[in-house]
Design a protein around this nucleic acid. Structure first.
Lengths: 240, 240
DNA sequence: TTATATTTGTGCGTATGTATA
DNA sequence: CTATACATACGCACAAATATA
């Protein structure tokens, strides 16, 4: 295909060639030729083309749709998500004139594991309410979150969230007028299969993973949460 | 393979079964049976097993080595990387009794593009020094960074970095005794092929992507940087 | 040190399923 | 209903890296 490229697998060369095609078109190419045509053009088997397309899908450059074709992804700008002591999902989203919504996915009562007990200042095994939720902006899924609350202090937190779709309002219903975020730990990973299902994203999407602790006005921990934000839809902004 | 699972692809079922095997072993399983054995056990073609293994590799659960076998990844704990106004890579790393090192990968002189000019408060096309570097802790690559500095104010910044391996010391050599970080924007993505080469990581690794601006004591922007941290080696910690 | 076997990686051919146009 | 286009699955063959006798 190219001179002096003996040691490189064909599917890599095909992937590079397709990437170059897209770059060269400068945004003009919206759809890829069909797999059979690409296989013919590069003189390889259709499987080899498919492997190349698979990696380009993983890179977020292409999106294949069964029965329709393979399309070049135009990536939308990320929503900025300022994180600070007073971070609230709904406020962040409404501030960008988008429509926020929180949906209860699942909930349960469970004993505190070591890291959560430590974060919340509880004894090991203390009863917690676990709340799995999804956050949406303008109907587009943005993130999944798992939150733990001390069950004794917040007996009705799950019901309150189910009704209001907002952690802030659910906490208010349980008597917490104000709270602030203490620490946010940020990492990243591939989306889990279960989250991918809810977020309606590719199985190999990348998520920003955060762990954070919220404190009430008396500096008592009230919530430990673990959120997964779709990395191609959100960008976190920290001011220091 | 399992009753009542008609609509699910075989490779998915195999992937789920392997994931369950690993979970069930509770860390005891270090190596997977060979592909042929798995194909026999699950009564599928070897390609089907390979596809399942491919997704588990993408999830970071497995690592295949040609000629040796397929191994279960034990994931090492991430290094905490506190980010604040006074974030310095070397201080962060030494604070955890690890040995930091910065290496100059490439450099160049180029005109400011619109976003960089805006971030640095320069006119469009103003001359910049671009500095590509790699940061290492204990000999293990941690991140790649691209930094831009106003070329007129910092004519010798590249040489100073090449000599010291530290942005802080290079800026000091150029007359900046102190600086602070203004804003950090955090997202995530798959590693680029070029970065994967330098970081010696899998081609499908996930990176935390940050964009940040540093200011000198007079609040003048002195540096715009774009860093890519390997997400499985580092966790950023923001205190708010 | 040298063969040989083992194990993963690549590539092709073929067939069939499923969603879309 | 038919043709198109991507998705899944199997079988075969050989290459490349590693392990073992």
């Amino acid at each position: 295909m190219i001179a002096g490229d003996e040691g490189i697998a064909r599917w890599r060369k095909v992937a590079d060639a397709i990437r170059a095609m897209i770059d060269d078109s400068r945004g003009a190419m919206e759809q890829l030729p069909v797999e059979a045509a690409l296989a013919e053009r590069f003189q390889v088997n259709r499987h080899t083309v498919r492997r190349a397309i698979a990696v380009l899908q993983a890179e977020g450059i292409l999106r294949a749709e069964r029965g329709r074709g393979t399309f070049v992804e135009r990536r939308p700008a990320r929503i900025a998500y300022p994180v600070g002591a007073r971070t609230r999902f709904s406020e962040n989203i409404t501030a960008q004139s988008r429509q926020p919504a929180g949906r209860l996915i699942a909930s349960g009562r469970e004993p505190a594991t070591a890291p959560i007990a430590a974060a919340l200042g509880l004894r090991l095994g203390a009863p917690l309410h676990r709340l799995e939720s999804m956050n949406v902006a303008d109907g587009l899924p943005m993130s999944m979150a798992t939150s733990w609350f001390p069950a004794e202090r917040f007996p009705g937190i799950v019901a309150a969230y189910a009704e209001t779709g907002s952690i802030t309002r659910a906490l208010a219903a349980e008597g917490v007028d104000d709270y602030r975020r203490m620490e946010t730990r940020v990492s990243a990973a591939r989306v889990s299969p279960a989250d991918a299902e809810h977020l309606a994203c590719p199985a190999d999407a990348v998520v920003l993973v955060t762990h954070s602790v919220n404190l009430d006005a008396e500096e008592r921990p009230i919530q430990f949460s673990h959120s997964r934000f779709l990395a191609d839809r959100i960008e976190m902004v920290f001011r220091t």
